[in-house]
Write a protein that binds this DNA or RNA. Structure first.
Length: 268
DNA sequence: TACATATGATCAT
DNA sequence: TGATCCTATGTAA
């Protein structure tokens, strides 16, 4: 679940449910009890996302910093949901209840700490939009890493994860091993444009959908049931949606990556 | 019941 | 590069 679109959507949903009326906070699991007690009963003033980081600001000036990591979830639950001991944090008010489980980070910090966190992040496409292109291009130009590794580097751009990196490279026709500094102007611009577009779509739909209208008709009725929203991610051995080749899987920056050997030209 | 896996990141070697 | 942390889910045994 958690790439940048998820976190921005979360920030917006939490804002809707909690900003404006006092929030009860506790830690059924116990591991966050002391900190939760500090802002328990306060007003949430603001809820925002930077890349994959979520920040909820409280009256006292304290800030709840959450990073979901690989397996974390922060979800709205029914008021009868039992307080299981995997729930790190539970937020409640009159109209809503949310449970946080398995976060990589859940900490109470102050503004200065927040600034340190975001100073280590590259441009966030969902905050800066198309205006972030310049920064992104400079980041690419100064790196020799394979683009497939760079896209996961949150200090180059903030919010992309393993699904989007495979899909972005497919849509731009770029081989994952291409060194960043060999990506030309047009490709860099296309990468940034698609990133902004796809993250916005993901936030709106609350899930990752990269498939384009013109490719929908090429999806055989056989596979119509599932897995129809992506081009490359987890599609090893299946037909490319745009040519007769098969999608191949490889490893890059310690994670699996998928690409079409025909549509995503080999780098030399 | 056990194990593999997951849209992440850090720390040790 | 590999081990590690956190939790839930699906599949194998």
């Amino acid at each position: 679940m958690p790439e940048g679109h998820t976190i921005h959507r979360l920030a917006a949903d939490l804002r809707k449910d909690f900003v404006g009326q006092p929030v009860t906070a506790n830690s059924p699991q116990g591991r966050f009890s002391e900190s939760a007690a500090i802002f328990d009963g306060e007003l949430m003033l603001k809820s925002e996302a930077w890349g994959k980081h979520l920040f909820c600001h409280w009256e006292s000036g304290n800030i709840l910093h959450i990073h979901l990591g690989l397996i974390g979830k922060f979800r709205k639950v029914d008021e009868e949901t039992p307080p299981r001991d995997t729930i790190r944090l539970r937020l409640v008010n009159k109209s809503a209840m949310w449970d946080l489980t398995g976060p990589q980070t859940c900490a109470l910090i102050v503004q200065e700490d927040l600034e340190t966190v975001i100073s280590n992040l590259g441009p966030d496409p969902l905050r800066i939009g198309l205006r972030g292109l310049g920064k992104f291009k400079r980041g690419l130009a100064s790196s020799k890493k394979p683009i497939g590794a760079a896209l996961l580097d949150q200090s180059l751009l903030a919010g992309i994860g393993n699904v989007y990196r495979a899909e972005l490279l497919f849509l731009c026709g770029i081989h994952p091993e291409t060194p960043c500094n060999r990506i030309n102007e047009d490709d860099a611009e296309a990468l940034w444009d698609w990133t902004v577009k796809l993250l916005r779509r993901g936030k709106r739909l609350n899930r990752i959908v990269t498939i384009q209208e013109e490719d929908k008709e090429n999806i055989s009725s056989k596979s119509k049931k599932r897995n129809n929203s992506l081009y490359a991610y987890k599609r090893a051995g299946l037909d490319c949606r745009r040519c007769p080749s098969e999608i191949v899987i490889s490893k890059l920056a310690g994670r699996s990556i998928w690409h079409c050997p025909n549509c995503q030209g080999k780098n030399d």
